[in-house]
Write a protein that binds this DNA or RNA. Structure first.
Lengths: 192, 192, 192, 192
DNA sequence: CTTTAATCGAGACGGTACGTCGTGTCTTAGA
DNA sequence: TCTAAGACACGACGTACCGTCTCGATTAAAG
């Protein structure tokens, strides 16, 4: 466990780090088309060829950039009150969405996903990642017997939080407290 | 209808046509990155510079390609039975979505929309276009007094059909009859 | 004589005039590469295609421009004193050379002359044109018996004035009064 | 001599070589306008962009082509008899001029020299290069005391050999033995 | 004073070249 | 070993100009 394969050359680790940091910056500021070995090399003060040693092509570079960009979410709220916890996770989600990073990443993934299964998988992972706190709360409620045990956590999370993602990602409109409230109400309705 | 159809030089019309046809083919088969003046020129047997005469850069070329790709939808079903008509439009929508063209177009728009307001507007238009039959049915029901007059047609269409789009475009899962049924049920619930 | 084929369409005459005026301006200010149908069209406010109606290609356009540029020289000085007249023509030549137009024209002709006999002929005409006053004075001196009748006027003009042209066009150095004096001395030497 | 020959990448050396060889061919056969990155690339079977890596634009490419074209002259003849040596260098010059390469090079330089000081300098170097054997002989004669020490070698070379260059480059007439003889006579006149 | 024919304006089109940027492969040297 | 440095073939970018080709709109001279 402790022996996780960290025995990587520290130079390698450093290069990967600074390259991806630069790539993330470029992705956020200029979109997919800016994630370029040449630009990363300039930005991170590396040789362009070094980038190619770590990622063989644009696709994998972009994918790695996105993966690097997705910071792990904190633990789901756990106050004992599931309805409150659920509402809390929705607020978190709302913040995360509007922190502006989500839209370009989602779009970049979607654009490639149409013609590259690797990106389709990444897109699914990404969206699930957005919902994972929500799913966690649902699962806890299930285990506590406050939700029927045959409820599918992912399914329910999609049903309740989906409209928020839809608004933000598909019809490009802002999400408000009203959307959070409605989803929270939906949760309480199944909570019984 | 009126003959304001520009009396445009037929050569010009033809060039625009074959160029966009080729561009559509490239977009559908290979995605955004294939929509290239050079490739269109080869595909459509035109001079590359001719492409630039009609569309000054990649962006406008891509936008024009997408506009060319979006065929106008037929009229909304109108049988007198609003619930049936609504269900029908959802089936249409479902078919249209899965006819495979929608996903790459949406994704292409979304990718640019993150950094180009023109594309954001196009994305909104595109999604509204997908829903227009649905909205039309809702509006007819409102005028017939079967829906409260304070219902917002676009809002309602998004609420009811949104989950289908969400499934297809965001979480990349297939849409089934179950989704149509559920949305139709939602419509009947507000109909009374 | 009076009936010279002036029966040309006045529009045509005007177009030719303004086009060549513009072309001359471009040639003098920017060199050969500026003599372009497109640029002339802008400068002279003509349609580019109109230029092509008058001159079929760049070569003939450039040639016409140069011909238009070469203004006919005034008559050779004629004071009765041949030595003085000769020195006067050399001063004129010196001024004409250094009025800056000559070098680029000569060079433009020479560049083409290497691979196009039409331009070679134009180059010869151009240089002879520079010397014609000088030749005229020599010929007058011959007819007055002050020079042997077997002297070749062109040959002598080249021998005497050639060094000035050489300095200016070949080794790119300024011409001074010393050069004029020396040539004039050479003339007086054969005059006796 | 010293091995400062750069230890340059042999690929690079080779590319430069074949590119310039092709460029020289194009320059001699078709003139300035043929010296084109695209045409060189085809002719030398290189990528067009590779040409741009070595020479950033048309001007420097043309300049490099001309430099590559100018082969170094052999040493000046040195028989002890200055008059004979001088006549020999003039014959050499005559041959070099008529070997056909000189005219297009001179013209190409002159055309650009009118508007680009770099080319003007190159033109001066080129002409001086043509005369260097001649100048060398003059300088040797000076050091041997057969010429007054206040004679300017370059000046004298221009005075004596200039007429030959003038004939060939300016009035586009062939040079004959007569021209060589006359110049040689001029040399003997100052030699005394 | 019209009518007819030459000329012009406007601009599309297939081309060639420009000079820039990016890609992915490769090789040589240096830390 | 890995990185730096950079050459290379390839191909797209967007621009400029070339020479050809319609098509109308002017305008000239002739009936």
């Amino acid at each position: 466990m402790t022996l996780d394969d960290q025995r990587e050359n520290p130079r390698t680790t450093r290069v990967r780090q600074v390259a991806l940091d630069a790539a993330v910056g470029l992705l956020l500021s200029g979109g997919t088309d800016e994630v370029t070995a040449a630009k990363i090399a300039v930005e991170a003060d590396l040789a362009r060829t070094t980038i190619y040693r770590h990622w063989p092509d644009r696709s994998s570079l972009l994918l790695a950039t996105i993966d690097h960009l997705i910071e792990p979410h904190g633990p789901a709220p756990d106050s004992g009150d599931f309805a409150a916890d659920f509402e809390r996770t929705l607020s978190n989600l709302c913040n995360r969405l509007t922190m502006k990073k989500v839209r370009p990443i989602f779009a970049a993934l979607a654009d490639r996903a149409s013609h590259d299964e690797t990106f389709a998988a990444a897109q699914r992972r990404f969206v699930l990642g957005l919902l994972d706190q929500t799913i966690a709360v649902i699962d806890r409620a299930k285990m506590a017997g406050e939700l029927p045990s045959d409820v599918d956590g992912v399914e329910l999370a999609n049903r309740l939080a989906g409209p928020m993602l839809y608004r933000w990602l598909v019809i490009l409109e802002p999400i408000g407290q009203a959307d959070v409230d409605e989803a929270a109400a939906g949760f309480r309705a199944v909570l019984s």
